[in-house]
């Protein structure tokens, strides 16, 4: 067999799988989002009508859609910086020459990343319980009054954010730590000789050096945040007052609870547009600031 033919044999299975189970469905989803494909259509394809952009237009008129969008954007806009900030702090601590037991600490801080989300979400649901949850117990011993984390519309999303930061900061921490370790020691040395304090070093040396990495980390984190689903599914089922219905949760409910696959596909494309738009925005902004 010639190398050229062999090459095709090597890549063909993977490309075929990606084509059949990814490319075709993406195209089909675009078509589907222009139809009223629903449970009747699952029973009999003659029950499908082509309705062009109607699904999208109807979404725009639905308060729940806007609520879902708002909830998701809130989670992204507040959650991503928070998550990256915690990751950065953790990475800086781990990178400090003064730190002890680095290996142990690194592993300990990373463990939530690999823990199954469904399992930790159930755990957190109980930790966040208004009366018997340890979080409120801790707060009350510090003198705060108990918060109805998952029952109060105002607190439900912040509670999920708390879980999400806890669960995910270790991931970015590892990446940023690698970035920190790549900064040459002479730079720090020079700064110290110039009499710069730790904060000045952070601002003028560490952050600029980490710039590209911070951008990448925040883009990845943002993509993940846009896809919030399992946490509200496990912990609040979209409530209270639909404050934790995210775009993906809406897609799940439309598509797989009410079996409006057409509407669900439209929601999925809206999500894609937003993710894409935000990524482009982020890259453009950081180019302008010269960090990337």
């Amino acid at each position: 067999m010639k190398p050229r033919q062999a090459a095709w044999l090597f890549v063909a299975p993977a490309l075929l799988a990606i084509a059949v189970f990814f490319v075709v469905p993406v195209a089909a989803a675009l078509v589907m989002s222009g139809t009223d494909f629903d449970i009747y259509a699952l029973a009999d394809l003659r029950n499908v009508r082509f309705i062009w952009l109607d699904n999208y237009l109807q979404l725009l008129q639905r308060p729940l859609f806007w609520q879902a969008l708002l909830n998701t954007l809130f989670f992204v806009v507040v959650g991503v910086p928070l998550s990256v900030a915690v990751s950065l702090v953790a990475a800086l601590l781990l990178n400090s020459p003064l730190a002890l037991f680095k290996g142990f600490h690194r592993t300990a801080l990373f463990v939530p990343v690999v823990a199954t989300l469904a399992a930790v979400a159930v755990t957190w649901r109980f930790l966040l319980h208004t009366r018997y949850g340890l979080l409120n117990y801790g707060l009350s011993s510090l003198g705060f009054s108990p918060i109805d984390w998952l029952g109060n519309p105002r607190w439900a999303m912040p509670a999920i954010m708390l879980l999400s930061v806890w669960k995910n900061f270790g991931y970015n921490m590892i990446i940023l730590l690698a970035g920190l370790q790549a900064i040459p020691g002479e730079q720090y040395e020079a700064a110290r000789l110039d009499g710069a304090g730790p904060l000045a070093v952070l601002r003028h040396i560490t952050i600029p050096a980490l710039g590209p990495m911070l951008l990448m980390v925040s883009i990845l984190t943002m993509a993940a945040h846009f896809q919030l689903f399992a946490e509200p599914y496990m912990m609040t089922q979209g409530g209270p007052a639909q404050r934790t219905v995210t775009v993906l949760y809406l897609m799940y409910e439309e598509g797989f609870k009410w079996w409006s696959l057409g509407t669900g596909s439209a929601v999925a494309f809206v999500l894609f547009l937003f993710m894409f738009g935000f990524t482009v925005l982020q890259v453009t902004v950081s180019r302008r600031w010269g960090t990337a």
Partner: peptide, 30 residues
């Protein structure tokens, strides 16, 4: 290995990463 369009196909694959997999769920289910 060398084959026609290797780099182009690979770039396309990387580009596909921006599409969230959840888009495929409904047609895939069907």
């Amino acid at each position: 290995l060398r084959f026609w369009g290797r780099e182009r196909i690979f770039r396309l694959l990387l580009g596909a990463l921006v599409i969230p997999a959840q888009i495929t769920m409904m047609p895939l289910f069907f």
